[in-house]
Design a protein around this nucleic acid. Structure first.
Lengths: 206, 206
DNA sequence: TAAGATACACGACAGATTGTCATATGGGGG
DNA sequence: CCCCCATATGACAATCTGTCGTGTATCTTA
């Protein structure tokens, strides 16, 4: 976690540093971004960087957390707009981000995805115990639209949706075929909605 | 990709290097494993390492590819044992690997998972175009057990299963609660089999 | 206002890491 | 016996990391 000093920084300076970091991580893979380049881009001395963050990893983790928070807000808003329909909200999320991507707005996030493909989308779910985030969203989800049999099912489903949606966004960013990525995402949603087991067959996993 | 020189190496030396690398990546996160430590553990000089691999990333990517191949073989075998039941085979895969993990056999792989949590399980699917791997397995899958509506659905489902199963293995390795991880995996499979949408509700993503 | 304390800014530096390269070695072919 | 090619090896320059001693600004207290 960044130091309090970092949070006490004037917003402009703080944002400049974060923006520089996002830009650099979006240009090359994490391992190939030296701290030196970030601080050069941000125009701060080396000592200051290590005053704000324990190390590069600390900064990167904070960036991801930040995206996670953004994501929660978006989903929250989209859920409200869809009267709690979880699947519809996630498809909206994809469309919204894909659109912004084309306009270059969330370009940074997409670039980071592209440059760090080995990153698990799960990092967004896994952060900060994941429970608090889930709890806050659960109230906005219309569960009558869902067929949830166990207490954990909502959490499981949410995890799947995040993974699949983030995967589609990555694919859109990497392959340069946004239409194809969206088509695949919708197919994935169909599987998640209706299930992939033939109705006649008995479930194998008991 | 490793150089031909690497593949021409006497098997013992090659294996020793790979084993050393796996052990080191299982001890600390990728970024924190200097090439120096690997070559020291493997007992080869620095120059040789760079004769075999372009860099650390090249080695790591090869290790993952290798695991991917192992995985394909396992799934192939387990599918045959389950008469093509995809879900059953994947649950077998989980059980087999979890069991071996407890006996310390695939420990290295699990350790690498634990130490590199940000790794996407998708790396296994995404490797080498993914298509060839899928094609080879498709013939062993009994599709009458599945409700596949589109040509790509098998591929999509497979992707989901790999992601979810690998995620469970990671969770088992990280949390130290293998029983819980298995329970969650089974729940995930139920969602994938039966779907999460209430039967009454109309699907939102059309 | 002076003195002292506190927080932050800065960049030089020691230690470690990376990838390269000149040189050494070894065996098969002429 | 010599040449050629593939491989082996570790010294080396360039680079990166995290730390630390030294400035500077602001706030406290008298």
């Amino acid at each position: 976690m960044p130091s309090t000093t970092f949070f006490n920084l004037p917003a402009a300076k703080r944002e400049k540093l974060l923006r520089a970091a996002r830009a650099e991580f979006g240009r090359t893979a994490y391992a190939d971004v030296p701290v030196s380049r970030i601080i050069q881009a941000a125009g701060i001395p080396r000592g200051s960087f290590y005053m704000y963050f324990a190390d590069k990893q600390d900064l990167f983790a904070y960036l991801l957390e930040d995206f996670g928070r953004q994501l929660e807000e978006r989903i929250s808003r989209l859920l409200d707009g869809r009267r709690g329909d979880l699947f519809a909200a996630f498809l909206d999320l994809y469309d919204e981000m894909a659109r912004e991507r084309e306009r270059g707005e969330v370009q940074e996030l997409m670039d980071i995805f592209r440059c760090n493909r080995q990153l698990s989308p799960g990092v967004f779910v896994r952060q900060e115990g994941k429970d608090s985030r889930m709890e806050r969203l659960a109230g906005r989800i219309d569960q009558s639209l869902l067929d949830l049999r166990r207490a954990e099912d909502l959490e499981n489903l949410f995890h799947l949706l995040v993974t699949v949606t983030a995967g589609a966004l990555m694919a859109a960013g990497c392959s340069g075929d946004p239409a194809g990525a969206r088509r695949r995402l919708v197919q994935m949603f169909h599987i998640l909605e209706r299930g992939a087991a033939s109705r006649a067959a008995a479930p194998a996993s008991g």
